[in-house]
Amino acid sequence: MLNIGAHLSSSKGFLNMGETAVSIGANTFQFFTRNPRGSRAKEIDPEDAAALVRFLEEHEFATLVAHAPYTLNPCSAKAETREFAHLTMKDDLQRMEYVPGNYYNFHPGSHVGQGSAEGIRLITEMLNDIITEEQTTTVLLETMSGKGTEVGRSFEELHEIIAGVNLTDKIGVCLDTCHVYDAGYDIVNHLDEVLEEFDRIVGLDRLRAIHLNDSKNPFESHKDRHEKIGEGSIGLEAMVRIINHPKLRGLPFCLETPNELPGYKKEIELLRGSVA
C-alpha cells in the first residue's frame, strides 16, 4: 500500500480535508496549522476534529502531517521573532491533540549570520522548552535546500539538533525530495547511498515522512522551487524508485507540487500505478 496524499486547505475544517483527500485518491494529507504567512489560527471545532478522527479510522488513513507556518524562525537573531516561534509552536502542539498521534513538521529556520552552531543551539533550546512527555504528536525537522543561512541543510545539522533534544522519542525527520536534491544529495543516481548516509548520521528510524516534490532547479543549486512530478530535474524514474524503495515503504508521502486538486489527483493516480 502506497501511503500518499497532498497538501490540502484547512479553511473548511478538519472533516472536509479528509473527504477531499478521499476524493483525489489519497490516504493521508498535509495541512497548515494556521496562516502560513502570518500568525492567525482558526478556532478549532472539537466536534469537527472528532469527526475527522473517526473518518481517518474508517478509511484506514496513514499518519497525517501538519505543517508549521513559514514565518516561524526559532533561531532568528531577533528575540521577538524567537518568542513568536516559541508561542506559535507551543500553541500548535496543544491544538494537535485534537487529532492525536500525528506529525507536526517545521522548517528549522535561518541563523541569519549567527552561525549554524548558534542556530542549532537556539532550535534545541526551544524544542526542549516546548516538547512534553504527554504529547502524542511527533515533531519533524524538515530537510532544507541550503539557501541563505538555512539550518537543516545537511544530515549532520539535523543530527546535532536531535542530539540536543531531551525527549528524543518525540522528534523525527521529514525528508523533502526537492530540498535534499537541491542541497547536494543525489537521490537520482545514488538513492541507496543517500539513504545509507542518512541512516549512519541520523538513523532511518527517525525518518517519519516524505515530501515528494520534483525540482525546478538543477542538482546542488541550493534553491527551493518545487515542480510537478516528472517535470523537473529529479524526474519520474527517480520518483518511482523512491516510492518503491524498501526502506521507505510505509511512510506517508505528501505532495507539495504546484497543483490544484485535479493535478494532485493525476499525480496520485500516476504514482499508485507505478508501485512495484
Rank of each mutant, 00 (worst) to 15 (best):
L122G: 00
T88V: 08
L191R: 00
G235A: 11
E157D: 10
N259P: 11
R272L: 10
G13F: 02
E57A: 14
N105K: 04
F253Y: 14
R54Y: 07
Y70D: 05
Q114G: 05
D91N: 14
I234H: 07
A209Y: 13
I44G: 04
N189H: 15
A209D: 13
E57Y: 03
D192A: 01
V22Q: 10
G25I: 07
E97Q: 14
E193W: 00
V188M: 04
G230E: 10
T143C: 12
R40C: 03
I268D: 02
F61E: 12
V151F: 01
I229R: 14
E118W: 00
D129L: 07
K223T: 15
L52F: 08
L141M: 06
R34D: 01
T177C: 01
R54V: 13
P74Y: 06
G5L: 02
A183N: 14
M126A: 10
A238Y: 01
E227H: 08
D205E: 12
D214H: 11
E97K: 02
C178Q: 03
Q94V: 03
L127M: 15
N105T: 12
E97L: 04
E227D: 13
T88G: 02
I234S: 10
A183D: 14
E125N: 14
K12R: 14
V112P: 00
L248V: 14
V194Q: 09
C254P: 00
L52Y: 03
F31S: 11
N35M: 13
D182F: 07
N259F: 15
S221K: 10
G184Y: 13
D199Y: 09
G146Y: 02
V188I: 05
H190Q: 02
C75L: 01
N27H: 08
R206P: 09
N166I: 01
C254F: 01
K265P: 09
E256V: 08
L261Q: 10
